[in-house]
Design a binder for these strands. Structure first.
Length: 890
RNA sequence: GCGAGAGUGGCGGAACUGGCAGACGCGCGAGACUUAGGAUCUCGUGGGAGACCAUGGGGGUUCGAGUCCCCCCUCUCGCACCA
């Protein structure tokens, strides 16, 4: 125990241990279905139990849900607040490759550690519902759901260009690739054609957008989902290849393009295909072939990242082929260029340089014609992308843009040349991974080429035991080596069959865990209808905004499938969503020129002042040499006259930066240490007191003593006595003085309102005021002390239980009724009215709460200081705001 | 580039529909109690000697603006040639 601790007079260590044991034994947080009570389902986003354990940034959201679930329980709700583990995943597998430790063992240890940390924080989880996605009893139902997806035609195998990440040794979904790098680890990703499992999430594109109207989510997250689905209304148009212009006889008869501006069809002067477009090779003429092939080859080597980097600088080549304009029949040259994306729309566009900035840049570069068809711009200066009136457009002339679009769409449909359509950015979800530590697919690849589902009765399909977890060969999963596991006989047809050697991505388990929590031990079905109907939907869901287009989109998709199957009764799983802001750490940075991390490199180091950052790459200010950021752990920093210095490199000044906590930056703070020194209640309180829940804030351990002092004051308030004196409270009977009764009522009202609005920081401030002011008027009335303890209990549950017991109560706080008050009592009996002249504060006065307007104005006029300021002048105008303010305008 | 959010004391932050800017806490200062301890308690604490000046900067609306409107700057986060 530190010296600081010994002098505090409430011993958080023994108190917290005592009440955690009490909760473990009496299980007051067990949730049982009770139709007589309204339910409230509070859920934290499913944690992945990493080897590093929790840092102080993680529990922020968990503490908030803990407070809210305790509060709701006291309000009479039947609260479900479960916790479990999203335990499949790459780190355990990578650790297995390095050490040979089986991922199951690593996972078990990590879960144990996480659970210990959660319990040390005093969390009110119903541990009887704990689940683990790697548990065969859970895997069984994840595979069962996959069967349902497959039966509905929503899971299929497809050969398609996929995101292959060599460093991770697996393919990734579109949502897991950010700026051409893996979301986890930031490794390069390349596109490789592979045969993979896909889930038809695109079939739900419209509903994934439309049903956002049903949920109470942050607008920013809804927007991100809408944009990710990327619904876009437009037209598809077929452009016939001009006879005899294509390089080969098998050339596609027509090129299909997608456009949102069918009103500008008359302005199309050429077509552009993505280099990867299927028709490229067939249409290219012999004389253009060499150029085209070189360009295609070059484009395939340029990563998407590089392509985007020099945005604006358009490149491309002519294929030699022409298409005829669908209306005028005019021949349009067909080009290929990488500014057209193969992955969006049809991978081909009609170029309207007069009304599209990209087409304009391309046309200018290659001298292609620019034809204005919408009035309002000047083709000499740039593309006009706004709306206007059609010109040079045949039957569209004189129409406004929206009318022209519709007219053209109708015309296209009538003439069999296209028509109105909707495009989505969303692609089907790539659902297989070349990993060991995931759910095997419950399918058999039969000798005759068919795919058979493993019968329900044979689920789960479990992973074979392995000693060596390395990938097999280039793009092969480790399971591909286990012949005895792969080779089986199909129980239905008796033919020889092979298991699928891929596994499901980590998202699979988290797509339905919230449903399993409703009925976690059911071995007949994934969950019972009764349980689902009682508990769902999740009333409050708290977790990081980084899942905006990953977990939250995937889970909504699965939920909707299950809705269609009649397995759940609500179209949306998560009613209200909250994203806690990140807790940041202070890290200390410098730079060096060892960009490739070569240990034998002659390293030169630089302070931040020698560095400039260009497009996120740090460069030496003078030489332009590429540098890499390095960090010194905050505990190793050498302080010299208030300046952070490198501990060993003489004279190297470090720069303090506030950023996300991570091990590599040496700025993580371990909650175990904070709890040991200050206690779990103090840590909970501090994290909530830092600021609004949804905003990020830098951690500062130096501020914690503030909340510790508050807890000590709370202890003294109820217990009475002084330091080291555990004497029982000198609480008096009754309501106390009018001031005390009012303070109590106002705090009850204020804290309740703040909790409802999740303003936990201001709720704590109100409790601090109550603890400070309650004793000013005399001895503490018992009614006030009890209300205080009840109000405090969701925030600092250990101390509250201790105090509650000390007041003679024999039942715990979990199910005590939340205090209420007579709102009339909360009204102050005196008001301070600010008196202004021309809007500037000149005086204040005390009036009784029931004073009327005339009375107040009369007194304001006679106020000595006001008279001084007015110097006899008569106010031209008098502003009176009901019981708030008086302002004289002179 | 586009979109969203934010910018308030030395620091984290309050201020609900325009109405006493800086609640609460950290830090800092003074004092009290003390076997001088980084404990506890009390008081003070935006700047300025001052009328006054202060919510990123500039303009506006209003009796009155942190809050509403316009322009600009900075930071954070999304998206990024999506046709």
């Amino acid at each position: 125990m530190s010296p600081r601790l010994m002098s505090t007079f409430y011993d958080h260590q023994s108190i917290e241990k005592k009440w955690q044991a009490y909760w473990r034994e009496t299980r007051p947080f067990r949730a049982d279905r009770d139709p007589a009570k309204p339910k409230y389902y509070v859920l934290d986003m499913f944690p992945y139990p990493s080897g590093a354990g929790l840092h102080v940034g993680h529990p922020k959201g968990y503490i908030a849900t803990d407070i809210l679930s305790r509060y709701k329980r006291m309000c009479g709700f039947n609260v479900l607040h479960p916790m479990g583990w999203d335990a499949f995943g790459l780190p355990a597998e990578q650790y297995a490759i390095e050490t040979g430790t089986h991922p199951r063992e690593t996972t078990r240890r990590n879960i144990q550690n996480f659970k210990r940390q959660f319990q040390a924080l005093g969390m009110d989880y119903d541990w009887s519902r704990e689940i683990d996605t790697t548990d065969p009893a859970y895997v069984r139902w994840t595979q069962w759901i996959f069967r349902k997806l497959y039966e509905r035609g929503l899971a299929y195998l497809a050969e398609a260009p996929v995101n292959w990440c060599p460093a991770l040794g697996t393919v990734l979904a579109n949502e897991e690739v950010i700026d051409g790098k893996s979301e986890r680890g930031g490794h390069p990703v390349v596109r490789v054609p592979m045969r993979q499992w896909m889930l038809r999430i695109t079939a739900y594109a419209d509903r994934l957008i439309d049903d956002l109207a049903l949920v109470d989510w942050p607008e920013s997250i809804k927007r991100m989902q809408r944009e990710w689905v990327g619904r876009s209304e437009g037209a598809r148009i077929f452009f016939q290849i001009e006879d005899g212009t294509a390089g080969s006889r098998e050339a596609t008869q027509a090129i299909e393009v997608f456009t949102t501006r069918s009103d500008t069809v008359f302005g199309a002067t050429y077509l552009v295909l993505a280099p990867e477009h299927a028709a490229v090779s067939a249409i290219t003429t012999p004389d253009r072939r060499a150029d085209v092939e070189a360009y295609v080859e070059d484009a395939s080597r340029r990563s998407e990242r590089v392509r985007v980097a020099d945005l604006g600088e358009k490149t491309g080549v002519f294929t030699g082929a022409f298409a005829s304009h669908p209306v005028t029949g005019q021949p349009l040259p067909i080009w290929i260029a990488d500014y057209v994306l193969a992955t969006y729309g049809t991978g081909a566009i009609m170029a309207v340089p007069a009304h599209d900035t990209r087409d304009y840049a391309f046309a200018k570069r290659f001298g292609l014609p620019i034809v204005t068809v919408v009035s309002g711009g000047d083709p000499a200066t740039g593309a006009f992308v706004g709306e206007g009136t059609n010109v040079n457009s045949g039957f569209l002339n004189g129409l406004a843009t929206p009318d022209a679009k519709q007219r053209m769409n109708d015309w296209l449909a009538e003439h069999g040349k296209g028509g109105k359509t909707i495009q989505y950015k969303l692609r089907d979800w790539l659902f297989s991974r070349q990993r060991y530590w995931g759910e095997p697919f419950p399918v058999l690849h039969c000798e005759d080429g068919t795919i058979q589902l493993v019968p329900e009765a044979d689920l789960p399909v479990l992973l074979p035991e392995l000693e060596d977890f390395r990938p097999s060969g280039e793009c092969e999963p480790p399971l591909a080596r286990v012949r005895e596991w792969i080779e089986v006989t199909d129980p239905e047809t008796g033919q020889r069959a092979l298991r699928d050697t891929n596994t499901m991505p980590q998202w699979a388990g988290s797509c339905w865990y919230y449903l399993r929590f409703c009925d976690p031990h059911n071995d007949q079905e994934p969950w019972s209808t009764d349980a689902e109907r009682y508990w769902m939907p999740v009333d409050l869901y708290v977790g990081g905004a980084e899942h905006a287009v990953l977990h939250l989109l995937y889970a909504r998709f699965w939920h909707k499938v299950m809705y269609d199957l009649g397995l759940v009764h609500t179209p949306e799983p998560f009613q209200k969503l909250l994203n806690p802001g990140m807790i940041l750490g202070h890290s200390y940075r410098y730079f060096d020129n060892n960009v490739s991390d070569d240990p034998s490199f002659p390293v030169r180091v630089y302070p931040a002042s020698d560095v400039r950052v260009d497009a996120e790459t740090p460069l030496h200010r003078e030489t332009g040499e590429e540098l890499k950021a390095r960090w010194v752990a905050s505990t190793d920093v050498r302080w010299q006259d208030g300046t952070p210095m490198h501990p060993t490199l003489e004279g190297l000044v470090l720069t303090e930066v506030t950023e996300k906590m991570s091990k590599s930056r040496g700025n993580v703070v371990n909650p175990d240490e904070i709890i040991a020194e200050y206690g779990a209640d103090a840590m909970r309180l501090y994290e909530m007191f830092m600021g609004p829940l949804d905003k990020g804030a830098p951690w500062s351990s130096e501020s914690i003593p503030g909340v510790v002092r508050f807890l000590q004051r709370a202890f003294r308030l109820v217990r009475g006595g002084t330091e080291h004196d555990g004497s029982v409270a000198s609480l008096i009977d009754g309501q106390g003085t009018p001031n005390q009764a009012r303070l109590t009522a106002r705090t009850i009202q204020g804290v309740t309102q703040d909790l409802e609005a999740m303003r936990l920081n201001t709720a704590i401030a109100k409790l601090m005021v109550m603890a400070r002011d309650l004793t000013k008027d005399g001895p503490v009335p018992r009614a006030s002390a009890e209300a205080f303890v009840l109000l405090l209990s969701p925030f600092a549950p250990h101390l509250a239980e201790e105090l509650w017991e000390g007041m003679g109560h024999t039942t715990g706080l979990a199910h005590q009724a939340w205090p209420t008050c007579d709102p009339a009592l909360a009204v102050p009996e005196e008001l301070t009215i600010p008196l202004q002249i021309n809007g500037k504060l000149r005086s204040t006065m005390q009036v009784s709460a029931d004073a009327g307007e005339d009375d107040i104005l009369e007194r304001a006029r006679n106020d000595a200081r006001m008279q001084e300021w007015l110097k006899g002048a008569t106010p031209r105008r008098v502003i009176y705001v009901e019981k708030k303010l008086v302002n004289f305008v002179v």
